[in-house]
Amino acid sequence: MSVIIILLAASLSVAGFFLGAYLWSVKTGQFDDDYSPAVRILFENDVAQKGKPNNHLATPPSGEIHPDGVGSTQKF
């Protein structure tokens, strides 16, 4: 029956991981603003077409942009 003990250890550590994730997300204030993230994601980035840099594109994390655009944050 030792397999049960192994399974239990596995399940407990998975649950413990989620508990940790939950505590971390509360601590970093991810539940503080329950309105703006939901709305923000729906905004179009069409202001950038005016030739002026858009807020979200103004400081792209340079290390993550591939030359061919794959994985670029600009795709979103």
Binding site: D32, D33, S36, V47, K52, N55
Partner: peptide, 26 residues
């Protein structure tokens, strides 16, 4: 949401502003 949108695009009005973020409930 209009307020949110405008205030987070405020850098269009002044290039010196690098970024802006609204905390809605506060």
């Amino acid at each position: 949401s209009s307020c949110l949108w405008l205030l987070e695009h405020i850098n269009v009005l002044n290039a010196g502003i690098l970024s802006s973020e609204v905390n809605f409930p506060q």
